[in-house]
Design a protein around this nucleic acid. Structure first.
Lengths: 343, 343
DNA sequence: CTCCTCTACGAAAGCGCTTACGTAAGCGTT
DNA sequence: AACGCTTACGTAAGCGCTTTCGTAGAGGAG
């Protein structure tokens, strides 16, 4: 911290406006018990002195912070950076500051980061990374979060977790179903799903939606191969290489996020497979760049920034008796990467 | 802040290890003046109790924070999110937390954010947004930064600013020159530059580099139109529309960042212009997605994450007698969006 | 053995704020 | 007029830590 020796303190404001430090504090923080005229006088003095409260002193004394913590897998990933963007914007409106940490997709690092946020006594914690299908993986995190919540901390998550906290739930399953129906509607039957690890609820839910559509169409979901790889562009490339080797007659690829879809597109192009001529490709998320790809990526739009903002809004609200859930609709966006099945 | 009533305090650690609170503090923060045996005993007790120092108390007492502030234009923009990624990673290694704010590319908001970071007594401030060619635009910021620096705060910037602080300087001009030479080498002569506002040093420097190459090739830089638009994908689209209307015989587009280049690609495709068949396009930055576009984008690689990390490293070092500058090399990456000039 | 210097530690004074708690003044009741 | 209640403010006790200053004890020099 900078010893802004010149920076005025509350007591300076109090002196300048001829009141006690307590009254000055109340006037500036809006605590009732100060007459309007005095309050205005204090605010005036504060303005003139260029007074800004020392956050640390305030936090220490009051036991609460304006800082909120945001945990993401990787801030360089558009999915998360767009969520972060929503959080930052709403936070700024509310005079909150945001401390971001990224975990490199490591569940242990995630717990570690949350622990440190708790230690730093942030006012709320937002977890943007996906949850795990296996609740036991989240057990350490759940413990941490519960202790924090019991002590009065607010927590909200994006995605389906087993943490018992407020959550913003994107319509992953309906979205998966919608995109699969679109693919099926184009006449595709030899389909491959390109997927991240099924341990993540995000992935599992989207896949479930795809299966819903397959079965509604009278197909056996078991006949559709699910190729798993890292939930990244490179993962998408890898899966396409496997697909070309093992399922060469495939006419449609349903990737479970845009990153993988972009990798698929890239690898298909390198391999001389035309999209959507020979193979259709769809993604999920609608990251900003999806519309600028060539061909434009058919995908499922999730309003990431809004999801982030909503999670923050939940965390800022008074806690409910039990965990709240806010569904966020997913919307199919058809572009040029999907077309009628080749025969 | 959460009243983690159960959360142990320094005094608990002190009691548990049978020393005074002063000694405990010294032992845990590594201040000399404690025997090794006692220090170890204290650390042991802290570990057993799960003690974590209260950041606010520490900051208040010591007058310094482990938090560093990062100011970006827009965290959802890959250029900035990749810089942020580098900062976050290095910060985590150093046990620092990062508070990020974004300004929506508004210089006034930027000053506002810095002011609030100063008020919050962060230990260092990193400014990742571009500087302005016109030093007077930066005057308010310069004032803020200088007051902060004089009071002992550390500041580092990415890009060329007029703030008199340590900076990480990407080789924008050499990069611009390299990409223009590449375009010229392919035989292009009817070239258009697609540019963001020339008020930004980033833009101006890249453009200067392009001009260097043009003139080195014996061309009159004045003959090459510079189309300006927002430094975004939409800006790129817009410029292409203007180019098609006003300079229909253009064979190469040099976009001054990848975002605009992506927009160019997108608009050219919609307009039925083949790339690189009829028109070549180059970008600048090499954001992650550049290689996965179709065609792969020829661009100038800037190691964004590294730039962020370096800026943090500068801020973490002892301040030098005068502002340090670290150049970061830019590297031409040739992909498929550029090809020989059509005749 | 005395004096001095170090070293290792403890006592206590804050850091700048919030917030019980106390109190004086104003007002309505009876 | 005495009482109680409310309102508006001041006093002072912390919040949990760092750090200055003081001191006891060990060790070396004379």
């Amino acid at each position: 911290m900078v010893r802004t020796n010149r920076s005025p303190r509350l007591i300076d404001v109090a002196h300048a406006s001829g009141v006690s430090i307590a009254t000055a504090s109340r006037a500036l923080s809006g605590t009732p018990g100060v007459s309007d005229s005095v309050a205005e006088k204090v605010r005036q003095a504060a303005r003139e002195l260029g007074y800004v409260a020392n956050l640390h002193a305030r936090s220490l004394a009051s036991g609460s912070t304006a800082t909120i913590g945001l945990v993401v897998h990787e801030i360089g990933d558009p999915y998360f950076s767009e969520i972060a963007s929503g959080v930052l914007s709403l936070a700024a409106e509310n005079g909150r500051t945001v401390q971001i940490c990224h975990t490199g997709r490591d569940p242990e690092a995630e717990v570690e980061q949350v622990r440190s946020l708790v230690a730093n006594r942030v006012g709320a914690i937002l977890i943007a990374g996906s949850g795990f299908v296996d609740a036991s993986v989240e057990a350490p995190m759940r413990l941490e979060v519960q202790r924090y919540a019991e002590a009065g901390g607010r927590v909200a998550v994006v995605g389906r977790h087993h943490l018992g906290v407020d959550s913003v739930l994107p319509d992953n399953r309906p979205g998966g179903r919608a995109v699969a129906e679109h693919i099926l509607g184009l006449g595709h039957r030899r389909i491959v799903v390109v997927s991240g690890t099924l341990e993540l609820t995000t992935v599992a839910d989207r896949l479930e939606g795809v299966r819903d559509a397959l079965e509604a169409a009278g197909l056996d979901a078991g006949d559709v191969p699910v190729l798993q790889g890292p939930f990244t562009r490179e993962g998408g490339r890898e899966c396409i290489r496997r697909m070309l080797a093992d399922h060469p007659r495939t006419t449609a690829v349903i990737a479970l996020n845009d990153d993988m879809a972009i990798g698929c597109l890239s690898q298909l192009r390198s391999s001389g497979v035309s999209v959507p001529g020979q193979v259709s490709v769809s993604g999920f998320d609608d990251v900003a760049v999806a519309q600028d790809l060539s061909p434009g990526l058919t995908t499922v739009r999730l309003p990431m920034a809004e999801m982030g903002a909503r999670a923050l809004a939940l965390a800022l609200k008074e806690p409910g008796a039990r965990a709240r859930r806010q569904r966020v609709p997913a919307e199919l966006v058809v572009r040029d990467s999907t077309g009628p099945a080749a025969r």
